[in-house]
Each structure stands twice: as structure tokens, then as C-alpha cells.
Design a protein around this nucleic acid. Structure first.
Lengths: 129, 129, 129, 129
DNA sequence: GTGGTCTAGACCACG
DNA sequence: GTGGTCTAGACCACT
């Protein structure tokens, strides 16, 4: 289930992309599972179908989803699409951004590291019953 | 010294804001230090003075800088402006965003945590020579 | 309806910010209500769209509004953003400023207090018909 | 004794004007008292003499001070310089501004009124020993 | 259509 | 010289 938050600074497209990525990473969506149709999800989230289509397109080009024309979208087999240097660059960007975001909040470094660690643990793939 | 990267996804304004915040947090700029003038920094970075002014304005409203018309901008005395609940909310947002950013990069959680930790250590205030 | 007064010592931006804050505080704008578009309000007030955008940006960063790119601006859910010490500091500043402003007008203290009290009552949230 | 605060959003000129007005209103400076010389006060406050001269000029034109050429500046006999309508207008502006300043702080109206009342009482003219 | 960003250039008050 | 404000017009991403 995806929730769109009105106060969220991210665009609606980005919220959908993030939510699906998390569901796949956490194992809530397994390889081969089918995703809701563009029209169905758009109706459920009360957003423009173009917005959902764009999010799905982004996820496909990132290698999370495979489109089977006429059948729908399915969770793809994990593969490493990015070069090592590109992965390194993105990690660095994300770390820099995180630090910039929390730099003014006056939390001790230990607290920050602990929170990141907890959140990553929570996302570790879980088997479904 | 501030550097503007053209390939950076952040806006120029945001790059300036981030750079100044980091310099203050790292102790490279001490309380009471004067910042480069709007026009001077704009010329040095080859950007429009309005862009620098916007960045400085944002830093002032966030409490990092004090503007003294006719004199210049100075590093402000730190104070806790935000409520605990707001700080908690922002930390949570930052953690969520970081996780979303790195979720597809297939790095082990330990690596991610270590990188965040290193980066935070690097920002711990240092005395200047 | 917002009115811009040319003789007002406040900047146009500030007049817009104040007007919107008051409308929200008085309940004329409810949580979730959409605001006039940047371009629309600019045309109505006969000011530059950038000026309206600056006012809206300030209101957003203060937590009064949520901007949803492509959709518009909406009244945000209220929350306590500032720490108690910061609220106290700002109240003190406002009181000091008020006293400085009226100190030379030779009104009896009772009159001044009564006027402030009336004005605050007038702002108490009202149901709309 | 006048104090110039670096973090104060008011201009230095305005800080001096406000401080002198308060001292006169509170009776710390009595009618006929001499003020510090422009040069002397400028040196003490570490500001430009032009700034002090400008503040004194403003106070003189508002009727708080009388300049006795060659002798210095003295606290003037109170008189009502402004028309009733002008006084009313200024009071209204000050009230509006105060309300705008505190509208987002979420203090109960009673607290706000009480604080204004206290501050006005503290300024009631006192005899000096 | 929406808001967001950047550039360019003008004018003001302050020190 | 300083920062602050406003105007004008362009370009971008999002819906």
C-alpha cells in the first residue's frame, strides 16, 4: 500500500518511486510479483495516470521493474546496472546530502549514526509468510 | 573557499547555503567572523548577486548569520531555534531520504553506516591554526 | 482578498506575508485550502510574480504553506516549529518593538493594552458561514 | 548607558533612537539634562559619529531633544507635536505590527496582553533619587 | 497550467 | 562601500 503525503516536499512521482523501491528492497514485493496497473494505482492514489506512468518508467529504467507489454509490470530480477564509480559517486552524494540536512539540528553524531543504522536494519529483506 | 559545481543536482543557492553551513559547523568560520560581501562572492563565483543574496537570506533566517545593513554579514551566535518535535521530524526526513537514495546501490549496511560516521567526524569543529 | 498599500512602510513582500498569516490565523483560510497562484495574485495585485513568489516562499519556510509543484500552494497543518526559548525571545522582541513604537504617542497605558487586546480578539479563529 | 547589540535587526541609528526615547520616557533622563556629545557617544559605542548625529537629529525633529548650538543637546520639554489623527494612525500601525509579529507564536491572548501591560508599567516615569 | 531558479539591472537605506 | 527590495524576462520540472 502506497500513501501520498500532501506535506511531503518530494514530488508525487518521487514518492511513488521511493515507495516501490522500499517495498522491493524490504521483500514486500518479491521478484516476479505483478504491480498494480497504471490506471488502477492512479485511481487509488487520486493522482494523474501520467504521474504513475512516469514513476513506473523511472523504476523500469533503473532496473527494478520489467514491463511485459500487454501484460503489465513485474518486479525484475536484481542486477547491478551501475558502474562501481557511479555507485561510489551516488553514495557520496547521498552522504553529503544527509550531513547537510542534519548539520543544523545539533544532534550528537552517535545519535545520527544509530538512527541511520536502525533504519537500514528495518529495510533488510524479510521473507514473507 | 566555496566552489560551485555545474553538474551538481543542487541549485546554486543551495550549494552556497550548504557550503557556508559546513564551514560554520566545522569551525572554519567562527562566531563573529565576517562573510564575503554579496557582490564580492557573486563575482568570485561568477553568479548573479541576487543568487548569493538569496542564499545569505536563507542562512540568516535559519539563524546562522546576522545581516547588518551597511556593514556586512557575520556568523551569528548559535542558538536552539527549533522545537524538539521539529528537530525529530527533520532528522526522520533526512534518514528516510538517505535510505531512499542508497537503497538501490547494493552496499552492505555496515559500509553505509561507516561512511556516514566518517563524514560526521570530519565535520566536528576544529580549531584553526 | 489582499490589499497592497503603497504608503505602507512594510515592503510589498511583507504585506503579502502578513495578510496571508492573518487570514490563516483568523480561519478565513482553512487547512488544505488552495491559495491564489503566484502569477494570478501577482496580476491581481499588479506586482511582479517574483515578489509574490518570495512572499509565498517565506510563508512556506515558516510552515504556514505547503508548496506542491505543478499543483499550487495549500494551507499547511499547523505545528509547533520553534523551541520555547525562541518563541519567548521573539515575543520579547515584539513587545519591546511595540513599546518603542508607541512610547512617544502619549497614550495612557490602559488605552494601549485595550487596543492590543481588541485586535487579538478580532483574530481569534472564526467559523466561516 | 546605551548598549548596541550586534544581533539586533534594527539599524544602529534606530537602536540609539529607541534607547534615548526609553530613557527619557522612564525618567532616567529628565527635562533639561544634557546628552553625551556626538563624538563622545560615537567613541563609547564604537560607531561612526555620523550615525550618532543622525540619531540625535531624528530625536530632535521628533521633539525629544533641543539643540543649543555650541552648547550641546538637551532633553526638551514634552509637547504634543503630532495631530490626533496621526497619533491614532501610528498607534494602529504599531498594534498591527505587534499582532503580525506574534501571530505565529501560539501564545494565548491573555499572555500577550499581560506582557505588553507589564512592559508599559516598567516604563512609567520614575523619579530619580 | 503550476511553482522554482537564475539572470540582469535599477533603486533605496545604512554606515 | 554594504545589504534589501522590486521589476523584467527567461528556462526548467511537475501535473
Amino acid at each position: 500500500m502506497i500513501q501520498i503525503a500532501t506535506g511531503d516536499p518530494r514530488s508525487i512521482t518521487q514518492q511513488i518511486v521511493d515507495a516501490v523501491r522500499r517495498q522491493i528492497a524490504a521483500g514486500e514485493l518479491a521478484v516476479g510479483d505483478q504491480l498494480p496497473s497504471v490506471r488502477g494505482l492512479a485511481q487509488q492514489l487520486m493522482v494523474n495516470p501520467n504521474t504513475v506512468a512516469k514513476a513506473y518508467g523511472e523504476l523500469s529504467s533503473e532496473g527494478w521493474l520489467d514491463a511485459r507489454p500487454g501484460l503489465g509490470l513485474y518486479v525484475a530480477t536484481p542486477r547491478q546496472r551501475l558502474s562501481d564509480s557511479e555507485r561510489e559517486r551516488r553514495l557520496d552524494d547521498a552522504v553529503q546530502r544527509f550531513v547537510s540536512d542534519v548539520i543544523g539540528l545539533a544532534f550528537p553524531a552517535e545519535t545520527l549514526v544509530a538512527r541511520v543504522s536502525e533504519e537500514l536494519d528495518a529495510l533488510r529483506p524479510k521473507k514473507r509468510a
